[in-house]
Amino acid sequence: MNLLRLVSASLLLAMLAACATPSRYPPPQRMPPPSDSSGAPAPWPASGESRPDAEPGAGSVAPEPEPEGPPPPRTVAEASGPAVVALLGQADTKAREGQPEQAAAYVERAVAVEPRNPFIFQRLAALRLDQGEPEQAEAMARKSNSLAGDNPYVRAGNWKLIAEARQMRGDAAGAAEARSRSQVYLSQTRGR
């Protein structure tokens, strides 16, 4: 008896049959979007809702060559291991494709790899700003500052983001203050 072969052959048919018949299980209804309180999950945004990704300032600062001592890292690439660089690269791609939440998820994976890397939180801040969430953007930028140590590059970028976040909230005075702080750090980077 060659039952094994018989059954194997009939499997192919079964597979085809399964493809042909419509699914017997209706997809579950889309859940109502959860409330917006903190800690609640964000509803999955439809793709294409977001603006194109705007890079935070820190990476674009072009400082002069370091005169002496180990210079603080200026960019993500200088500050991070290959895993984080790869994840943030994928996050950039998702952000460009208009999928900021997917992008944020990549950045969060990077947080798990290097939890004290200020550049990663800066990237989260930039993403939240793109998503129109100035409160989270500012909180993430300040979190990044709290991890930045003496790195003026990170701080300059963060204060620039904070300025934008405050502008978005309509806090012009706060934005101006943040912008001037950003300038102070920026001048420190030039001094190096």
């Binding site: 299980y25 997809p27 579950p28 889309r30 859940m31 959860p34 903190s38 800690g39 609640a40 999950p41 964000a42 509803p43 999955w44 939440e101 944020a104 998820a105 969060e108 947080v111 989260l124 989270q136 909180a139 993430m140 300040r142 979190k143």
Partner: peptide, 23 residues
Amino acid sequence: LAIQAVTTREGEPLSRYSLKTRR
């Protein structure tokens, strides 16, 4: 958080529990 994300059986994303912070 104890949850990162929820999807349908087929893998379609329903919700993501994103990292939030507050000073």
